[in-house]
Simulated assay, not measured.
Amino acid sequence: MMSKGLKEHIESLLGLKISSVMSVSGGDISQALKISTSADQFFCKYQAGEEGYAILKAEKVGLAALAGSGKIKTPEVIGLSKTEDGAFLLLEYIESKSKGEKEMIAFGSQLAELHQVMAETYGWETENYIGSLLQKNTRMGGWPGFYTYCRLLPQLELAKRAGLLSEREVPLADRLESRLGEICSASKPSLVHGDLWGGNYLISEDGTPFLIDPSVSYSHPGMDLAMSKLFGGFSASFYEAYQEASRVSFPTPEEIEVYQLYYLLVHLNIFGVSYASSVRSIMKRYF
């Protein structure tokens, strides 16, 4: 569950002896652990491999950006460190509870407020990650171009190289950008979580929403909404609260599908062919 070397490394960082370690959910591409000491509990994410430190560093930066907005909570970062064969990120442990209507209303409102933190261009200071995959963040002034060249094309090329999509199935860049210009609503670049499915937020015991495991950028706010709807969606009260607090129009059903294409491509490239039919269906319908 936890190597002796990793345990000693964390104990040195904390200045505390670890009394117990338990695996918890949240480890699709990494190992997620709840660490208990005599003083407190902590969440540890361990990422093996050469890119482990870079992936977790990007997560730390993303958490800081979201927390720095002052609009929504994230767990406090305790430390980030390299190990012999990877890296670990140590966070405050948030005891969570079931999501009630009151909490989802607060979450919807706070996400809308987060999306009101804006920039002049789409992108981010550096490349970061979505899951284990590199996420390109070249600064660009137009959303159709950014979504084409920094989101869809890199994932389409990965899928093509892996034999998950054929050459003829991948639309040309000009076609993608042109169609996106027709489909996408106007919006200023907004600070987004970037990977907002149901496993990437928590409701603490006192009812406070927390965002975790971000893939941040200044992007179209519809990206967070599209991802939130991909695997069943959040509660109706969440979306109602978001719309009430938001200063931008809610994405159309067509936009939602087009933005979900990015996340389906990511899943295709990480988890394999089970996502291919959904990817093909959206590309055939819109591109």
Rank of each mutant, 00 (worst) to 15 (best):
S3G: 04
L6C: 02
I10F: 13
L14T: 02
L14H: 00
K17V: 10
S20A: 10
S20W: 08
V21R: 13
L33Q: 14
S36M: 15
S38I: 11
D40T: 00
E51Q: 15
Y53W: 09
A58F: 05
K60V: 11
A65D: 10
A67D: 06
A67R: 14
G68V: 01
I72G: 06
L80C: 05
T83M: 00
A87Q: 02
L90M: 07
Y93Q: 00
E95T: 06
K97T: 11
K99Y: 15
M104V: 10
S109C: 05
L111F: 01
L114W: 12
L114K: 14
M118T: 15
A119I: 04
W124R: 13
N128K: 04
S132D: 03
M140S: 09
G141I: 13
G142M: 14
F146C: 01
P154W: 09
K160S: 08
R161S: 07
V170T: 02
V170F: 04
L172F: 13
D174T: 15
R175H: 12
E177L: 14
G181F: 06
C184K: 13
S185E: 14
S185Y: 11
S187H: 11
S190E: 02
L202Q: 06
G207Q: 09
T208R: 10
T208N: 03
F210V: 07
I212Q: 01
S215M: 04
S217F: 07
K229T: 00
G232F: 01
S237M: 09
Y239W: 07
Y239S: 03
Y242A: 00
R247Q: 14
E255A: 04
V266T: 06
H267Q: 03
H267S: 03
I270C: 04
F271Q: 11
A276D: 08
S278F: 02
S278N: 12
I282C: 01
